[in-house]
Simulated scan of single mutants.
Amino acid sequence: MRLTVYLAGHVHSDWRNDFRKLARSHDLPIDFVGPMENHDRSDDIGEEILGEQPNPILKDEAASQINNLRTQVLLNKADVVVALFGTSYKQWNTAMDASAAITLGKPLILIRPGELHHALKELSNKAQVVVQTPEQAIEALAYIFATE
């Protein structure tokens, strides 16, 4: 059995690569999907596909349409969603993806530091598992494959 895991969270760090390495170190049969990790391409994809837009707001709207398409398709294909919340950046996209996963009935592993407990209490309550580190999330995924 293989799982497809959607990695939701900010694109301002290398956390996804680190998470994939952790999964490989545990020899987990997981395929990872997620948002576009090239932040510039994500911002420019609307114009790349639809052509130059007349102002920055319409450029953002065009990119949003294409990115939302990607998110919806990949979230629908995912078996599990892992959403990482950090304290360094506003986490709007992470919250949106985690909420969409819940709406779609996808199991959610929420990674969040303790100091975000209050801010994320409702979302945490809907997640199947809430952890504080990526390593703990990997252990939760590894347990799915455990036989003893």
Rank of each mutant, 00 (worst) to 15 (best):
V131T: 03
V81M: 08
H12G: 09
N76S: 15
P107H: 09
K121G: 00
G51F: 03
E52K: 15
G9Y: 01
K126T: 03
N55W: 08
V129M: 09
L104S: 00
Y89T: 11
V130I: 09
M96A: 12
A62L: 06
E115Q: 14
L28A: 01
D43N: 12
Q72L: 12
L123C: 09
S88T: 13
L123N: 05
Q132T: 15
L74I: 10
L108C: 04
K126V: 01
V82A: 02
V5C: 12
I49V: 14
V33P: 01
D60L: 14
V11A: 14
R20A: 02
T147Q: 06
E148Q: 07
L141P: 06
D40N: 08
S88D: 15
D18A: 13
I144R: 08
W15E: 02
V5T: 10
D18K: 10
E115K: 14
D44M: 15
A8S: 12
V73H: 11
S42W: 10
A142R: 04
S88Y: 04
Q132V: 06
P35H: 11
G114M: 04
I138G: 01
E148R: 12
Y6F: 15
R2A: 00
L3V: 02
L7F: 09
S88E: 15
T147Y: 00
K106A: 06
T133R: 08
Y89S: 06
V131W: 05
M96C: 03
N67L: 05
V82L: 05
N125Q: 14
A62V: 03
V33F: 00
A78H: 00
R16W: 07
E37Q: 13
N67M: 09
L69K: 10
A137F: 03
Q136R: 13
A146M: 13
H10M: 10
A83T: 02
G86C: 03
P134S: 14
T94K: 00
P107M: 09
Y89H: 13
